[in-house]
Nucleic acid binder design. Structure first.
Lengths: 212, 212, 212, 212
DNA sequence: CATGAATGAGAGTTCATTCAT
DNA sequence: AATGAATGAACTCTCATTCAT
């Protein structure tokens, strides 16, 4: 009754795998996905060989980090749905709360290379689609509640989301954190249904527009 | 009484320099600042030797591209100031109009490496400070006009600006372009002084907060 | 009064040893002696650890395969001696019959590395010397019978033997097999005492010339 | 009016290319085609980078050595045809004379890897086919002359040729050289039309049988 | 001056061998 | 005793930079 292959790993192997993933998450977030494999290994406290035994090449590692991240975000999204009383509130909570979870995947997406890797992986595509479905529900619901402006769709929100969550490199830790929170705040005010809003240019962007 | 060094270049050398810069701008925008020097040279139609004669190393090239870009943005900012009737309008125009000019420098900034290079160059720092001064005037003026929300400062606006102008990699050309315009639209509505706005978290970010 | 170490092995250990040897023989024959140890282990159905417990390093494994092979050839040579009515016939039979037995050792000898290993191992040297002695008897006898040309000695025959038994890589299985048999046939006709033979160049090569 | 790309190389580049090829020929012959690239470069008196600039990877180098070798053999074959008075003599001369030229290509062919590389290269295939054509003429002619046994065809001769020219690794330089010459001598006697010959087993092997 | 060849340090990856489970 | 995980040295290949032509 053993499920996914990860379960079959010996205890120590499992631990190493997790350490590598954690190290990669942090390092990718800080320096992008092109850092020397050796550095990731060292920071995970293992030899390169071990890293390569777990992840046959850099692409595999990037994919694994991405999957891990999508999992987390998805968990958050479901929690938001369950615990918030309105779709608008769930959307906002997701934006605010996922900030840190998203951090590394956002950075991973900054590299053209990573982009190619991720978009060509069916497992990741599936996770992404699942997330988009959840968001779509939030968007529709929040619009029905009259709180989200009507001239946007899931694609718009997702892009805004992705854009803002992309951390500014450099700057002190504290300023960076605050800047992100404030940007999100401004953006939320921009998303709010309000008489003062100008009509947006072009056409509504849907989830389908996010596919390459 | 020799003018700046660029002026002293022979016509063909000058042409080479410009071609290299143009090629680098395009390639940096498309693939980030880590592309092989040889590729840049080839795309500029010169040999690597020539590239290195003009720019002693990669950092020098990145700096030159950045300077070139800041120049353009600054020119735009001044035009906006001269031609628009209010500071709010100038700010909005700058946001919309600089979109394309900013494109390459934004991408250059995506690389942690480029960041370090740029922030440590006094010439670029000077250009950046000059730009911030202009923006500061816009921000103050627009708040005085009652059009820009009062709980933001130049730092907030600059960061938002930088965040949104960072292009989404992948996606079709058309969607990318539209997405950016719509994000800017939403952001502008978020920046607008309005009763519906929630107070922003943390403290106001000033131009000073942008220094590392 | 313990017999040789192999006898002391537990039944399962013994089985493992044999499987490894068999697998190595096949793989060395097919791909040369540089294949990853892991691949040999896998093909033998054991873990690498087990392989290394039995054979401390690659050289030991190569040596063991070689010993195993010399044993077989020697057995064949003795059978030929016992069962054939003349030395010439015994020699020919050995050439024809050993073809397949020799196959893997010949391939093993293709690698300069294997060569060094084998020639420096006293046990293998002993087996080889024993084989050369048997061949020497065949050669002398066949010459006394007037069937083997007189201007060759054991060294010549052994080298010819080794040369021809070295399988052509590539080619279909069937062609390869036939090519070897036909080459052997031509060689045998060349070895035959005949008036049409040209005198061979240089000097006769003896068994002693085979030592490095 | 510049012909092949090699002609376009700058004088120094050309010299380096030749040195690399010469070094590779010697080293491949002595140690097989798996030696570290660095060793080849060192032995050619250049840096690895230079080696890689000329030959993008090991396969390309192996191919180049093979082409170079086929060229030489082909030249020899044509000279033999022009200068010898009979096809039988031309064949024998080719066997004897090409001994050294063939040396490295034969060794290159010993590695399964090299085999794959070479057989998949159309340029090399063309050279090989050309050589086979020349040999076919020799074989037919020598049979018409009544000097070459009638029960062989080009495939048989080529394989014999290739087999014997494959140098024995190890052994002293002098013994190796002599052994090869004597093996060739024996083989030639085996090829000679003679009443004492036994009929060969199987069927005649033609040039077509040499294709994989 | 422009060019592109040469160099060599460094990154990615593999694999022999050791060792914890 | 068997297994397969971990290690790190060795090797391949790339590319920034220098230098001969």
């Amino acid at each position: 009754m053993t499920a996914d292959p990860e379960t079959r790993l010996r205890a120590d192997a499992r631990r190493n795998r997790d350490q590598i993933l954690a190290a990669a998450r942090v390092i990718f977030a800080a320096q992008g996905p092109e850092v020397p494999m050796e550095e990731i290994a060292r920071s995970a406290g293992v030899g390169v060989g071990t890293l390569y035994r777990r992840f046959p090449d850099r692409d595999a590692l990037i994919r694994a980090v991405a999957v891990d991240n999508f999992d987390r975000v998805l968990r958050d999204a479901k929690a938001a749905k369950d615990q918030e009383s309105s779709d608008w509130d769930a959307l906002i909570r997701l934006l605010h709360q996922s900030m840190e979870l998203q951090l590394s995947i956002q950075l991973a997406m900054v590299s053209p290379r990573a982009l190619v890797i991720l978009t060509s992986d069916p497992a990741i595509k599936a996770l992404r689609d699942e997330l988009l479905l959840v968001m779509e529900a939030f968007v529709r619901g929040a619009q029905a509640e009259g709180r989200l402006r009507a001239d946007v769709a899931t694609g718009d929100v997702a892009i805004l989301f992705a854009t803002v969550l992309r951390q500014m490199p450099g700057k002190g830790e504290e300023v960076a954190r605050m800047a992100t929170r404030r940007c999100i705040g401004i953006m939320i005010d921009g998303l709010r249904a309000a008489d003062s809003n100008e009509p947006l240019p072009g056409r509504v962007l849907t989830a389908a527009d996010l596919n390459p």
